[in-house]
Simulated scan of single mutants.
Amino acid sequence: MASLPAPAPWSTPLPAADPPRGMAIFQLPTGTYETRAAFAVQGGSFREKRNFAATAVLLMHPQGDFLIDAGFGEHVAEHVKLLPRVVRAPHQAGSTARQQLQRAGYDLERLRGVILTHSHWDHAGGLDSLPVPIWINAAERKYAATDAAGKVFRVVSSDHGIHEYTFDDHAYLGFPKSLDVFGDGSMVIALAGGHTTGSVVVFVTLPSSERYAFIGDITWQLDGIQRRLERPWLLRKLADSDAAQVRQGILRVASLNELMHVIPAHDVHAYDGIPLLPADMSQ
């Protein structure tokens, strides 16, 4: 096991952001699936089992709300059957994102869409019960339409509107292209690539000045960032479209680790500081 070389810490001022009062984020855990640490990160033990999160994040903003990823769907068992047998794993499904939102009295008309960090099944499955537009870039849309790993996405997205967003050429925290969704710096989508061709990092800045980086599957677990560890060799071959680009993403995020909350999509404990939905959001 060899860590990637330590990058220089980010030393220039963080990008300006003016998040509005009332902006907030909440986690919506929809279930987990089980894998061995040896398959999660280089040097992991085969004896250690890890629960991988399938969690959506609700971002509330006066200009409209978004989900970052959708988690498991109502038909998660059928979605698992669509996967190659080699990647199927025991899973435990909880309430879907839609069920949690409805139980909290959230008005679904507020949702402008679901921004996918990428189109794999454990990020997109919850679209099967969320009648909102899918925000996706052209590279990821093409990947999802043609790659074998996009089979679940193709099923759950068939009756959805697609908002195909485009990046500008402004670099953001080391990533070469980005999109400032609201124009106030509070949520910026940055092109990462590597895991899938159009995979992204979603950067969020709250009114409290807390910053988050939702990094999708650049790494599956926090120790991949903290210790700069890639996926095991076989998993890089099976799971990533460009391992060198993923390696670059790990180093970019590692340089930011002391400046913001880094959230790998499948690390259960990375979400610990993000609140659950309030009991009643109807007021």
Rank of each mutant, 00 (worst) to 15 (best):
I274K: 05
A149N: 15
E78C: 02
A270W: 11
A145L: 13
L116F: 02
Q283N: 10
R88Q: 15
R50M: 09
P278F: 00
G126S: 05
F66R: 08
P84Q: 13
A56N: 09
Q100T: 04
G64D: 09
G94D: 04
L116G: 04
M187C: 10
Q102W: 07
T30K: 00
D272V: 02
I162Q: 14
V202A: 07
P131T: 05
V41G: 03
L251Y: 04
L235A: 12
Q248C: 15
G105F: 00
V80H: 12
V132G: 03
V246M: 13
R228H: 02
V132Y: 05
Y271D: 01
S158Y: 08
S241Y: 15
L101P: 00
A279I: 04
G31L: 00
D128I: 03
A254W: 09
H269P: 10
Q102C: 08
R211Q: 09
E210M: 11
S157L: 06
P207S: 11
K151A: 14
Y212S: 01
S45Y: 06
S199G: 09
A16H: 14
V246I: 06
P20S: 11
P62K: 07
I134R: 00
Q283R: 08
P62M: 05
P278M: 01
F72W: 05
R228N: 07
A37S: 12
R252S: 14
A124W: 00
T96W: 00
A70P: 04
F26Y: 15
S209K: 14
A89M: 12
P176I: 07
L83C: 02
I274F: 01
D69Q: 12
F167W: 05
P5A: 13
D107E: 11
Q100F: 01
V202M: 06
D240F: 00
G198D: 06
